[in-house]
Computed example of a mutant assay.
Amino acid sequence: MNSRIGVLSDTHVNSLADAANLAELLLNGPFRGVDAILHAGDQVCPELESCFYPLPWYGVRGNMDMGRSDLPDWRIIDFAPWRIGLIHGWGAAAGIEKRVLTVFTDRDIDILVFGHSHQPLSQRQGKLLLFNPGSPTQRRGAPFHSVGVLHLGDVVHAEIIRLD
């Protein structure tokens, strides 16, 4: 089965209007036809999830979502046969990959999606794909605003999509 998964992180939207505008931009553009949405934390506006309804939504808590008891710190999502680890991350951008990997050391995952640094990244570490979609709203030193799409089929392909 082939799936396309929209991947977001560090949206930092502060209002329902901003959330709706971002969702409309993405659903009519890079996320058109996706099967689900992953959000790697710092959603900030809880209503963002509802703006992507009826798509399945999987999120985790970022450092800016600390009041959100409904979001786990990390999770594993199964899109058979692929297993995706989802976490926000913490600390400086340098070394974030090593820090988030420690949470999943003894867990069988194929893809590790994370955020926090606002720096887009798609790289293999052995059989594991590390993927950070960047941020669609705040570059913080990144070369551009971005989101991601995971293409899940016989093989996994991760695409970083530049928004500007």
Rank of each mutant, 00 (worst) to 15 (best):
A40T: 05
A40D: 02
D42F: 04
V44W: 07
V44A: 02
E47Y: 07
L48Q: 05
L48N: 00
L48H: 02
S50F: 05
S50Y: 09
Y53E: 08
Y58H: 15
Y58G: 04
G62M: 02
M64A: 13
D65I: 10
P72M: 02
D73N: 12
I76A: 07
D78S: 15
F79A: 08
P81A: 10
W82C: 06
W82T: 09
I87C: 07
W90C: 04
G91N: 05
G91D: 03
A92Y: 08
A94M: 03
A94G: 11
G95C: 11
G95N: 01
G95R: 00
E97T: 11
V100K: 09
L101H: 01
D106C: 07
R107S: 14
R107F: 12
F114H: 13
G115N: 03
S117H: 00
Q119A: 06
S122K: 09
S122A: 15
R124E: 13
R124S: 11
Q125S: 14
G126L: 10
L128H: 05
L129S: 05
L130K: 08
P133F: 06
P133I: 04
S135G: 06
R139W: 02
R139H: 00
R139S: 03
G141Q: 03
A142D: 03
S146C: 09
S146I: 02
S146D: 05
V149E: 03
L152V: 10
G153T: 08
V156E: 10
H157V: 14
H157S: 13
A158G: 15
A158E: 01
I160C: 02
I161W: 10
I161C: 13
R162K: 15
L163D: 08
